[in-house]
Design a protein around this nucleic acid. Structure first.
Lengths: 159, 159
DNA sequence: CTACTGCATTAATGTAGATTAAGAAACGTT
DNA sequence: AACGTTTCTTAATCTACATTAATGCAGTAG
């Protein structure tokens, strides 16, 4: 368990590494993402201050997630195996699962517009801090599609 | 913690209930699913023998998941708060998260065909045990689309 | 056996979002 | 300030999948 200062753009964890760390974000902003077989980047989560981020390493092998810094950040790095299993950690995991569940349901049932509305509602702060194309990547759509979604929203509020 | 026998079609948990149980499947097959605002059903997971299934209830409130039996089943019901936080349980959760992560990445990056291929690879047994329309619901596509995907696969293997 | 009901398949038509491309705006670097 | 680089927007075209609808096929009940 140690404190790190990372610069914007710095990579904390490469895909496929077996070392399994957990990062608590004290300040700044991290993200985790994967690169699919077609070479496209998909943002899996954003982690602003007070969040925790980790890859999904299991006993079965590594998960293909990168973690990097979108802003200069202070993070506390901890090894997963030293985390213990206090019920506090347990709760955090349960909460994270809930977010993932919701995300899956949204991907299956909601349109790009609905997913964007939900994103803005849940993470209003993030929209100001990251480029649009990353929000598009999080939503599972292209930056072009996000752009049209946003203009539709503007025109709607005229009515 | 008690053992239950449930009949095919029986509902173990309704959406919105606050009671938070975990079910270990001894034999048979359960599923969890949600119904979206448009009234469409989306299968969240299948749980054959030796799996565990639960809703996503958190401190923040209930998750909108139903759980029911697709086959006559024997299950062990346990209250979440009595689970303790042994590292065994912890590991199970981590594994589940891994599955969810993979699913999200697939939904964002893979076509219907690729998702089906992956499903068959990971859950070959399930394809024989549930109706096609439920597999479609799990994959996030319509039964019609799944039907064409399957015929494409057949024609491909001719070549 | 016939009639009903739910499921699977196939085909037509429609649509959300991808792709491609080109111009405009914002940003970092010297 | 002036440059290249990245990001954002807009529009035209394309494609994967949804929707709708018709048909065939079990399974089940009378």
């Amino acid at each position: 368990m140690k404190k790190l200062s990372v610069k914007k753009g710095e990579i904390l964890q490469h895909s496929g590494e077996l070392i399994s760390k957990v990062y608590y974000v004290v300040s700044g902003l991290l993200r985790s993402y994967s690169i699919d077989p077609k070479g496209k980047e998909h943002i899996f989560m954003f982690a602003p201050e007070d969040w925790m981020i980790a890859d999904g390493v299991t006993v079965d092998g590594p998960m293909e997630l990168f973690i990097d810094a979108l802003e200069d950040s202070e993070v506390i790095q901890q090894d997963k195996k030293d985390m213990g299993d206090s019920s506090h950690q347990f709760d955090k995991l349960i909460k994270r699962m809930h977010v993932l569940q919701k995300r899956i349901i949204m991907l299956m049932s909601a349109t790009a517009i609905e997913r964007y509305e939900y994103f803005v509602e849940v993470y209003p702060a993030i929209t100001q801090r990251v480029p649009q194309k990353m929000i598009a990547s999080y939503l599972g759509i292209t930056p072009e599609a996000l752009s049209t979604v946003k203009s539709q929203r503007l025109h709607k509020s005229d009515s």
